[in-house]
Design a protein around this nucleic acid. Sequence first.
DNA 1: ATTTGCGGGCTTA
DNA 2: TAAGCCCGCAAAT
Length: 439
Amino acid sequence: MDQEDSTSQSGEMTSWDINDIKLPQDVKQTDWFQEWPDSYVKHIYSSDDKNAQRHLSSWAMRNTNNHNSRILKKSCLGVVVCSNDCSAADGRKIYLRPAICDKARQKQQRKCCPNCSGPLKLISCRGHGGYPVTNFWRHEGPFIFFQSKGAHDHPRPETKLEAEARRSIQKAQTAVSPTSPRLKRCREVESLTGEMQSQEAWPLLLSNQENYISPCSFNGHLLDKNPQEQINSCLSLAKNCGFGRSPYLTEHSQDIGSDKYYEKCKEIGSREHDSRDLSGPSVCNMYADYRKPQPWNKNTTLERNPCTDKCCNGSTLSLADLHCEIVSPQNCMDSSIQHVPNIPPTTKAGYQPSRPNPGLSGDDFYEGKLHVNYNSSYIPSSFYHLSSEDPYLIMNSAHHHQQPSPLTKGNEWDFEEERKYTNLDYCNSEMIFSLYPLR
DNA sequence: ATTTGCGGGCTTA
DNA sequence: TAAGCCCGCAAAT
């Protein structure tokens, strides 16, 4: 029996079963939210834990009717892979997140591999006696009880955030008109499979372009708007992620991690959507503690470095600078970000098992304040490149102070150089915003 | 458009 | 009866 069958990670006895009429009431310490629960584990979360409230998991879990309204049951959908078993330029495999909705999932499987344009296939989870792994959630008073049955027998899919980022890229594709041969191939494939157009392929289409794309564009805030709207959206997004000067953000840094803080961030981000005032010190220092090495992110530890120090010196920031700064990943990403092997980690938990730091709640991992992507899924590093044909980015890049890129060799993109300088392979927009403070 | 939760209903062991 | 699955609906995102 797994140790976690008898003891939760916070030390609580877990001699209970989710179906018990009466569950433990004398829970002394709740568990830290587990993003990748696996095997036959049980956890007791606080009912205040937002992730637990939302029954979140980075596995693609769908709701399953167990005819018991008190116990929510979810079963794993597995992972979507490339039928050609292709590998990206850096050797990683394609592990897409299955759409939760049946209809969307069927549609997803008609699309093509973002890497090789081959057909996609769904690997079903059969980790529970040949059936999918099941997760159970039950709310009882101040606690949320979680129980997992079965061990996932497939790679981890991309996280929800990564999948959302990928979809944003898909939307962005509709705003540009790529003419890459790769896209043409993909379209041809899709025309044969009845699909109108591949959108996942878009990031890779840009792998030979020499310009950068702002991470703002990840969420589709940039490419589908006019230039000013793009900037405003980018600003809003940045503020939502904790950047920019805000009375609340600067005066209530002690609230970081709390619901109150995040709700306020969202409110401010929304209210100041059209604001042009980005002057003043950034709130980057509020994130300093988040960069401290953590047991669960030792592969992605960010330490202080000239870049981040430079970025955090509290000088003023203009709109153009915001775009400029965010746009230049090679100037800011810490080279200590390491590649993670393309295998599921052997350790069970992705996070601290208990709650050692109340200032950094489990909510953060899904709230965009701290998201270090250390899983095995694939986000093309070329997300950060953009065709020079894009008029908006030409405009934006023309008037700021971006230095000539060491990554470009004429029109060729050197993947080795790219990794050397940027190490962005495992990044997503949240990570960029969280880990790259303004100067 | 997609996710999420709910619940009816069917099949199988 | 329990478990697994399919389906449709509604609300939320």
